[in-house]
Design a protein around this nucleic acid. Structure first.
Length: 828
RNA sequence: GCGGGCGUGGCGGAACGGCAGACGCGCUGGACUUAGGAUCCAGUGGGGCAACUCGUGGAGGUUCAAAUCCUCUCGCCCGCACCA
């Protein structure tokens, strides 16, 4: 029965026992220090893919390791269960309801996760599509609403024609829908937004606190928030009692303004052109630009097109009369939607000016060169001295920025201003399968929030899933018609649902109180568990989920609903799983199914391979032969340990390195070296691949040790080596180690054992081999006593006959002894 | 264009500035076998009979010593991209 490694039986058996014994149920409060290990919860798309397996294998090693190290580890799992694929499946196949589709997928994927032997506390499972969960999504929305952070606004928004809904800016990649790749259109719609821009400064500044995050992610967030410093300046319009506000980061170039540009959608455009001969032409142009896709509109490649409005404004610093243009390269959403054009010192303005024959005036002069506007082939955007700038002539441009701002402020012409690229988060979705926005519209009272006591606003089951561009909920009479909570009169419900990123922005709080029906979470529990100590997931959420979660956390912190102002202390972004150098995908036909691998080799092999093949942040190249190798290794462990049986228990630890000699001492040293290496690689560096290789080396050494005649072997050393091996391997391959732990006469789960400690004294060698270098090249190796001093080392090396022969008649210039490593002799 | 990352054997990958290639895959040879695609042992960067020598994308530099630090350069990957 113990002869072969029967992974199927072993894995099924222990999964059953763990479930029966609630082995991974975590108490909220404990004497042990807390550790919150979290992996990004999956969208229940159907079945697990290798990316999931990688993500969750990494998390499980961390969770099991920290548990063995004595922490009370919260390690939950749930489902990001609202979203379009469920609804699209319903549209396509007709018969199946998104709710059923989702629940079935969850059941399948939960079973798959359990087959992987992941140590989740399943009592805490949440699904965002469950009314018991989305009640709190709606509650969260109302909290934001009541604090003035949720508002409805009509504006040009991103519309995905294929998904038939609007999208947040974060969900548009290169002008296309990040989900389905359709080209996104602009539509003028009234939508719900969250004021994430109120938090722009803190979201940016607090990136500093996140020392446990990859720089890559922090830089991406920094760029996305896009802070810039500059000035807002008012340019009076000639002949009108109006002025045009512009935003510039280069107030030092204000004397070089030769024209003004408004975004086509700018509200002033219509006023400026009214009654002017070019009015018709401009209206036509504005219409054209509006109809362009986001991609065509914002492409750097696109030609800059503009028209003169016929109006002029006055440069407030020098009284110059400058023409006002309308052009496609100015965006309404950024800054004030209007820019002052300084063609000499801005490349875009330069190109535009050349094309339309607008004047170019140099106001920043680089040192040693005189710029000639006529001869310039590109704008000069670097620093220099201010010229043609009145009182500022001779000021270095860098100082000029603040000097001009100061002047503008004193004169009441403008002021310093900080601008962000970040825009408010659009959360309305014109789709069914999401959390309904809990707002009621009453003719008398306007928009009225649904009272907390009436939450959740239930999603009706009987709806028609036609992608009409309106929410399917709008077609559902019983849902739409209601009474006003304020006046009791007839009223209509909001029929849009929320962006699913709203659901996933707080699930890590809900895990602390998953079944609480009276509050989103228990304050004590949240303060006990949060922030998440280690968050693990794909880098694709670098901006989306991770930025939204930081925003929501700060809002909750300000409302004193949580005690942490950042959600995730440490972040690990794992690389993709590739096959033949490309991301696994159905269309490429290079998908390896986790099911097949688990069926053929078992979960332990699958986990071990994935952790061994590559460090976690890097992409992982799938290799069937590599999987075979991991399988072979586990078999090798099995054959090594299983036959020992109860014999192992007979060996007593000597714990006395001093009395050990030769092979026994070596075996003990290797054991403790492995403990040290695995502890450091898993605990500090997350280098699971090198941790596994250290375990492999331990196994190889034990194999050699086993060949030593029994008379010469130390039973205690053997026992310690094998037990350490099992304990070190336990987080990686939980089933086989559990089985072998039991087989070798141990009581209790291996996963409940304390993590082994290495003894520094066991690592000490009597003698070590050091390298002798001549001019940095390895020429010899000699054996020296381990604790030898640098001076003694130098002397010993120089005494060697071979070394003297190597030196010959050359002159020894310098000898550099590096204790424990080498001696380098520099000769001439 | 801007920002970030990565270039090491046939392959995945190791190397606090200190023996390049740990560990694994693959390959070669051997053992055990009726057989082996199981297992065990040995070998395995290139060149050379050898002493040696050349080797971490390329070119320089710093250093007693560089895959590692600096400068330039080439290639690949990722993110952002008219943000005034």
């Amino acid at each position: 029965m113990q002869e072969r490694y029967e992974f199927k039986e072993i894995e099924a058996k222990w999964q059953r026992i763990w479930a029966e014994q609630d082995s991974y149920t975590v108490p909220d409060f404990s004497d042990r220090p807390k550790y919150y290990c979290l992996e990004m919860f999956p969208y229940p798309s159907g079945k697990l893919h290798m990316g999931h397996v990688r993500n969750y294998s990494i998390g499980d090693v961390v969770a099991r390791f920290k548990t063995m190290q004595g922490y009370n580890v919260l390690h939950p799992m749930g489902w990001d269960a609202f979203g379009l694929p469920a609804e699209n499946a319903a549209i396509k196949h007709g018969a199946i309801h998104p709710a059923h589709w989702t629940v079935e997928n969850i059941d399948t994927m939960r079973a798959q996760l359990k087959q992987l032997g992941l140590s989740y506390d399943w009592n805490r499972e949440v699904a965002t599509c469950h009314p018991g969960y989305y009640k709190w999504t709606q509650w969260l929305f109302l909290q934001l609403y009541q604090h003035g952070l949720a508002y409805k606004k009509k504006s040009a928004v991103n519309w995905c024609p294929s998904c038939a809904t609007v999208l947040a800016n974060e969900q548009v990649k290169e002008g296309s829908c990040e989900r389905c790749d359709s080209v996104v259109e602009k539509r003028e719609l009234e939508q719900w937004f969250l004021k994430i821009t109120n938090y722009a400064d803190r979201l940016l500044a607090d990136l500093e606190k996140l020392s446990g995050w990859p720089d890559k992610v922090k830089i991406m967030q920094k760029n996305w928030i896009g802070r810039s410093e500059g000035a807002e300046v008012n340019f009076p319009i000639e002949g009108m009692d109006e002025s045009v506000a512009i935003y510039t980061t280069r107030p030092d170039t204000i004397y070089g303004v030769t024209y003004m540009v408004l975004a086509p959608e700018h509200p002033l455009v219509e006023k400026l052109i009214e009654g002017k001969p070019q009015a018709g032409q401009i209206r036509e142009f504005v219409k054209q630009v509006r109809n362009l896709s986001e991609l065509a509109r914002t492409s750097t490649e696109a030609e800059k097109i503009g028209l003169f409005t016929g109006a002029y404004c006055i440069n407030p610093v020098n009284g110059d009369k400058v023409p006002i243009m309308v052009a496609n390269y100015v965006l309404l959403e950024y800054g004030t939607g209007a820019v002052m054009a300084v063609p000499a010192h801005d490349q875009r303005d330069f190109e535009f000016a050349r094309k339309y024959n607008l004047p170019i005036r140099v106001v920043i002069q680089p040192e040693g060169v005189t710029l000639d506007p006529g001869a310039m082939i590109e704008a000069f955007e670097d620093e220099g001295l201010m010229v043609n700038s009145g009182q500022f002539n001779g000021t270095p441009s860098r100082q000029g920025i603040s000097a001009v701002i100061k002047y503008l402020q004193e004169q009441g012409l403008g002021e310093g201003r900080v601008n962000y690229r970040l825009r408010d988060w659009l959360i309305s979705r014109q789709r069914y399968w999401g959390a309904p926005i809990p707002i009621i519209y009453c003719d008398q009272c306007g928009a009225v929030p649904v009272p907390d006591a009436e939450l959740p606003v239930m999603l009706p089951m009987d709806v028609a899933f036609k992608p009409t561009g309106r929410s399917p909920l709008a077609e559902h009479e019983d849902f739409v018609h209601t009474t006003c909570p304020s006046c009791g009169g007839p009223a209509c419900r909001e029929t849009d649902t929320m962006d699913t990123f709203m659901c996933s922005s707080f699930y890590y709080y809900r895990y602390t109180s998953p079944r609480d029906e009276t509050s989103a979470w228990d304050g004590d529990k949240v303060r006990q568990w949060l922030p998440v100590d280690q968050y693990i997931g794909g880098v694709e959420h670098a901006i989306l989920h991770l930025l939204y979660s930081r925003f929501i956390t700060k809002v909750l912190f300000d409302m004193q609903l949580v005690g942490n102002d950042e959600p995730f202390t440490n972040l690990l972004t794992q690389g993709m799983v590739l096959k033949d150098g490309a991301k696994m995908s159905k269309s490429k036909g290079n998908v390896v199914s986790p099911e097949d691998i688990v069926a053929k080799y078992g979960a332990d092999t699958a986990r071990l391979f994935i952790l061994f093949a590559s460090p976690p942040e890097r992409d992982l190249e799938w290799s069937d032969q590599g999987v075979e190798g991991s399988y072979r290794f586990l078999n090798r462990v099995w054959r090594l340990v299983a036959p020992l049986g109860d014999l192992l228990a007979a060996g007593e630890y000597t714990g006395r390195t001093g009395s050990l000699v030769g092979i026994n001492k070596d075996m003990r040293r290797i054991t403790h070296l492995a403990i040290k290496k695995v502890t450091e690689d898993v605990g500090n560096r997350f280098n699971f691949n090198t941790a596994v290789s250290a375990i492999m080396e331990l196994v190889n050494t034990i194999y050699q040790y086993r060949e030593v005649p029994e008379f010469d072997r130390d039973a205690g050393v053997m026992r310690e080596a094998v037990e350490s091996l099992l304990l070190l391997l336990a987080p990686f391959a939980p089933h086989i180690t559990e089985e072998l732990w039991a087989l070798t006469g141990h009581k209790g789960s291996i996963h409940a054992q304390p993590w082994p400690q290495y003894s520094p004294e066991a690592l000490v060698e009597d003698e070590i081999t050091i390298v002798v270098q001549l001019n940095g090249k390895v020429r010899d190796r000699i054996l020296v006593p381990a604790g030898i001093s640098a001076d003694a080392m130098r002397e010993m090396v120089l005494k060697q006959e071979k070394v003297q022969a190597l030196i010959g008649d050359k002159k020894v210039v310098k000898v550099i002894p590096v204790p424990g490593k080498l001696v380098n002799i520099v000769v001439k």
